[in-house]
Design a protein around this nucleic acid. Structure first.
Lengths: 210, 210
DNA sequence: GCACAAATCACCCGCCTGGGGGTAATAGGC
DNA sequence: GCCTATTACCCCCAGGCGGGTGATTTGTGC
């Protein structure tokens, strides 16, 4: 069990002005303590274990190893430390890669300082702080297309196909005949203008039909 | 183009105390206007078009049609209106269904009133407000398991299989022999202790290996 | 009540895929 | 220098998959 004193924060950020700015701000907030600051992931990975941080503020665009590539390494070194991504980039690919690698939050650099402190607090309380625009993108990634050409049953069957099940198995699980499943699949292929499982799945996912 | 005056808010919530409480709060905040309040989705669906709302606060546990089932209907009636889910439930299934149906945000009922107003503002600015715990669950849904038994290549091939591609096609796209792909698949099956595509995909997804 | 869409089942065909049994050479990382 | 990841090859055979055509029933909308 750790001391329940200050929240220990480490900053990994190459721009000295920004780094020292954040450090000053956080270090002077009651309840927070700067446990270390680094200009590169290489430096940080060598010494961060001694800092014993609760939260890491991690930049993604860094010279040498990028923050996004270093994320799994930090996670391996400090499995219980929360990592907050801090970046100017709002690219979907980057965001989902970061979250997939175990980031606990994703903030853009235009986030006002007091919100950053609030985000650190939030992440310690089990939250997942995100900048507004990021949150919207994350939510959008779940949204289905409601103007699908597929019927309910066709959508259901295509979802089953996307799990890798055979037509026979789908038929059994839906309590319908194999021939019925084949009919549905033929209709799906016609509607999506494809000629294979893989293409149907891709077309449907691209269009958020499934 | 709409008037850029007050933000028009509709509340759909069966508990009168809560409903009127929110209505009073929001109605008395500068820049916001209550365009309508309803105790059920049935009522709301009939009249909501005349309210011309910018944002709907929607409860999920309602008598009759649930908020979650009504969500697509509201979306159809008012495609440009933002819908904020307001509920006590924090079940993953419910959350992802709501977001999949087009909810722009998801708040729990313990959210302090001023945060609800802030969330309405945020959603109008293109954000995706979520309660802390919800946001964490959403983020967690992206997180991969880093202690996978699968090698990099095996993971890559299983990902391809999960897209419905045939072994031959995977071999071609990865510039390796069909027999090599078969070998990898055999190894994957052994490691995951399964005997089919579908089971491998399920096991891998359940464990977040892919 | 009628029309149209959705869902169901049927039988045809040819070809390739999928799952499982082995074995083994070469590269790359610690 | 060793281990494992990656690559590749041999065998077998059941059954799946994609495509064509047609027919029946259920149900929702106007």
């Amino acid at each position: 069990m750790k001391r329940d004193l200050d929240i220990r924060v480490v900053i990994v950020e190459d721009d000295e002005t920004i780094r020292e700015g954040y450090a000053f701000l956080i270090g002077n907030t009651a309840g927070y303590k700067i446990a270390g600051t680094y200009a590169s992931c290489e430096d940080a990975l060598k010494k961060i274990e001694h800092d014993d941080p609760d939260v890491i503020l991690l930049d993604v665009e860094l010279p040498g190893i990028s923050g996004i590539d270093a994320l799994p390494k930090f996670k391996k070194l400090l499995p219980d430390t929360h990592i907050l991504i801090l970046t100017v980039y709002e690219q979907e690919l980057l965001i989902f890669r970061a979250l997939g690698s175990g980031a606990a939050g994703y903030l853009t650099k235009n986030t006002p300082p007091e919100k950053i402190v609030a985000a650190i607090h939030e992440v310690m309380e089990g939250g997942g702080p995100m900048s507004a625009h990021i949150a919207r993108m994350v939510i959008s990634s779940f949204k289905r297309n409601d103007s699908t050409p597929l019927t309910r049953r066709e959508t259901e069957i295509l979802e089953q196909i996307a799990t890798g099940k055979s037509r026979k198995r789908i038929a059994d699980e839906l309590f319908i005949d194999l021939e019925t499943v084949k009919s549905h699949i033929k209709n799906i292929y016609h509607k999506l203008d494809v000629h294979s499982k893989a293409d149907a799945i891709k077309a449907a996912k691209d269009n958020k039909f499934i």
